[in-house]
Simulated assay, not measured.
Amino acid sequence: MRIKAVSILVGGEVLAEPVLTDKNDILIPSGTQIKTEYIPLIQSLGVDSIMIEDPYENYEDPNPIIDPARFDKYVQKVRRLMEGHIYHDGKSLKEYEIIANDIVREINEIPVDSIVDIKERSANLYEHTVMVTLLSVMVARKLKLDEKRKYNIAVGCLLHDIGLRFIVTPYKNRDFSNADPAEMFEYKKHTILGYSALEEENWIAPISMKMVLSHHENMEGTGFPMKQKNKELECKIIQACDAFDSLISGMECKRMSVQDALKEIVESVDTKYDKKVVKNLLSSVAKYPVGTTVKTNAEEEGVVISQTVDPENPIIMILGTKDNDHIKIHDKMNLMLEKNVSILQVI
């Protein structure tokens, strides 16, 4: 399945997940083929994107950062521990040690030059937490940090957004640049609240605690909560990885495409993010995740079906014309080898 903006629906798409009202009642169930008359209704609800079935799934060979079943297990563990801490009077979070070590071990087993598919999606706090941890440890490994530092990074990432559980301001898929000052103040408290909530957890290394406090600080000292120019590499890693996953999942900002998120990160090098960290992040993440439909400079349409060792030049399957509602499939094309063909735009 893949996410698609409601504004570009044409009708005929099949829902992979239900469309819900603001009270989480099912308006349109999964498996429904979208009719053109449904589109204005969906827009009227303020829904800007939906999950649809991928018609080319049988041709695709995605490379997730870890096995999806393992990812879901980490998410459930993080949810259980975080909710236990909130609802059971500060119950210890020491079990995060096990998760951190497991994630470091799992990332160590991935080929160091692996290009991973991470799609634009709608994520909750726990999914975002796990993805930031995986990305940060992957970047730390590329930077040749030792096992202890990778473990401390994993702990800091797993706990970095615990403060969001203590605020009342909505933070999913919203633009804070126009937020009410009182709401903005409430939102920015989450770094301090998270740091304070961990003060009794004496097993956490000081650098991991600093990551929790400073993951929204910037290189030029314009972030929050204290406008610090952090020099620690651990902090620089989480700042970039957290920002990237937030942009593509709508955590604490408006969601955008992978391509736009990568562009925004690159444009903020040396002002917000460390150049060396960003270089290693970009070398690990596919610019065009498997399932992305594209148009080439040869005016051909295709779908990304797998990655190469170049994150900007995947293997695509060229699509032909429709015949009785079925799209004819043409040849596969490795864009790393086709020097005269490049992706012009995402469609």
Rank of each mutant, 00 (worst) to 15 (best):
V168E: 12
E200Y: 13
D270P: 05
D61K: 05
D146P: 01
W203P: 15
P68R: 14
N173I: 08
E109H: 10
S44E: 03
I99N: 03
P311L: 00
N178I: 15
I318Q: 00
P55N: 01
A182P: 01
K287C: 07
A69I: 14
K236F: 10
D325I: 12
D323E: 13
A261V: 12
I86E: 05
V290M: 08
S122K: 08
A286H: 03
C253W: 10
I207H: 10
E60W: 00
Q76E: 14
F176P: 05
E312W: 06
Q76T: 13
N178G: 13
L41D: 04
M251P: 14
G11M: 04
N297F: 02
Q259Y: 00
T308D: 09
M211P: 06
Q239M: 13
V6Q: 10
K94Y: 15
I347W: 04
E17V: 00
E127F: 15
R165M: 07
E17I: 02
K91T: 10
D274W: 02
E220R: 00
M336Q: 02
M51C: 12
Q76L: 13
Y288E: 02
Y56H: 12
K229V: 15
V269A: 01
S92D: 12
K35T: 12
E299W: 05
E300P: 04
A182C: 07
D323H: 05
F166I: 01
D175S: 03
K322P: 13
M51I: 15
S268H: 06
V116T: 07
D310Y: 09
R165Q: 04
R141Q: 04
K94S: 13
V10H: 11
I248S: 02
T133G: 15
V78S: 15
I305H: 00
L27I: 03
E13C: 02
L193A: 08
N152K: 00
T222W: 04
V78F: 14
R165L: 07
E338S: 09
G221K: 00
T21N: 11
M209Y: 07
I103D: 02
M256P: 11
C241E: 10
M219N: 05
T191A: 09
G320Q: 01
Q239G: 10
I204N: 10
D270A: 10
N230T: 00
I118V: 14
L193Q: 08
K227Y: 08
N334H: 02
L247T: 02
E312P: 00
S44N: 05
S196K: 09
T292G: 09
S306L: 01
L143N: 01
E127N: 14
R149Y: 12
A16C: 14
V47S: 03
F166N: 02
I42W: 03
I343G: 01
M251W: 02
E252W: 00
K275C: 01
N230E: 15
S49W: 04
M131S: 12
L145P: 08
S246G: 03
Q239H: 06
V294Y: 00
A123P: 15
R165D: 05
H330M: 14
E53M: 11
N173M: 06
P29H: 09
K272A: 13
N230I: 04
H330C: 11
I204L: 06
K148H: 12
H160I: 03
S257H: 06
S7E: 14
A205N: 09
Y87K: 07
Y74P: 12
P181M: 00
